[in-house]
Design a binder for these strands. Structure first.
Length: 260
DNA sequence: ATGCCGACAGGATGTCGA
């Protein structure tokens, strides 16, 4: 089963690119982030024509996550638990039936957190604390789980073109990197890193300052696998070519193949 | 040192992202 994640930066702006990408790569499951539309505004019909059913947790103008699946999604659950007054649409979870078992999938759009030293950064850290609590609870079922999406965290210096340039950024703060490591310490595996050792694997290139042309990217879109999912990991990939297409998102799709 | 680009809402230009 091929499972992909993509921060589309507005599904309306990315509809043509998304349909082309789906036709070319034929993923079984897709987690989308930053769809930037309400549930009603999501072009579900376009994807249904390509054989996908859609679960949407939308929001007007900002955020918004979705899951597309060739098989009917079950137990669809919007929103990250353990929140008190969080009205951002950043988390959507569902069950996907596979040939060899059921898979739990979450589409994640974690907060950016800039600038540091503000309530935005503390919101980011609080959000990740909630994610860790929930991720830990999910482990109790001992089932294959994929927590994938835009984590807005650069894990290591080798995951960005110039670590110095990101020193004061929320994406590369020690507390942010610790939040990702905490998930790994719970037992989740960074799927791309498990399959690829080379540095400078990027998933995001800023629109500004010719970052794409100069390959000044960062790796912030991640696939985290529970032990039961990691045991079935075959390979992963990054659809880097999508950044060079017409009207690209600033993020590219990241995918993994699971034997499930 | 700052903005660079792109999307949004709204109907000009400010906000947000990373």
């Amino acid at each position: 089963m091929r499972i992909a994640t993509w921060n589309v930066n507005s599904i309306k702006a990315r509809l043509v690119a998304a349909k082309e990408w789906l036709a070319e790569t034929a993923p079984d499951v897709v987690c989308m982030q930053e769809i930037k539309c309400t549930d009603d505004g999501f072009p579900a019909g376009e994807f249904e024509q390509l054989g996908y059913s859609c679960a949407v947790h939308g929001q007007k103008s900002y955020n918004g996550v979705a899951i597309l699946s060739r098989r009917q999604l079950e137990d669809v659950s919007p929103g990250l638990p353990h929140g008190n007054s969080d009205n951002h649409a950043r988390y959507l979870e569902a069950l996907v039936p596979g040939d060899k078992g059921i898979l739990r999938v979450a589409s994640i759009y974690a907060p950016n957190g800039n600038p540091i030293g503000t309530e935005k950064f503390s919101y980011k850290l609080d959000w990740h604390a909630r994610l860790a609590t929930h991720a830990n609870e999910l482990l109790a079922a001992e089932e294959p789980i994929v927590l994938m999406g835009d984590y807005n965290i650069i894990p290591e210096p080798e995951d960005c073109y110039d670590p110095k340039a990101w020193e004061m950024d929320a994406l590369f703060q020690p507390e942010s990197r610790r939040a990702l490591r905490r998930l790994e310490n719970l037992g989740y595996t960074d799927a791309v890193r498990a399959c690829h050792g080379e540095p400078q694997l990027y998933t995001f290139w800023d629109y500004q300052a010719g970052c794409w042309q100069k390959n000044r990217g960062i790796r912030i879109d991640h696939i985290l696998l529970s032990p039961q999912a990691a045991d079935r990991l075959v390979t992963t990939g990054i659809n880097k070519h999508m950044r060079g297409r017409e009207r690209p998102s600033d993020h590219v799709p990241v995918w993994c193949e699971l034997d499930i």
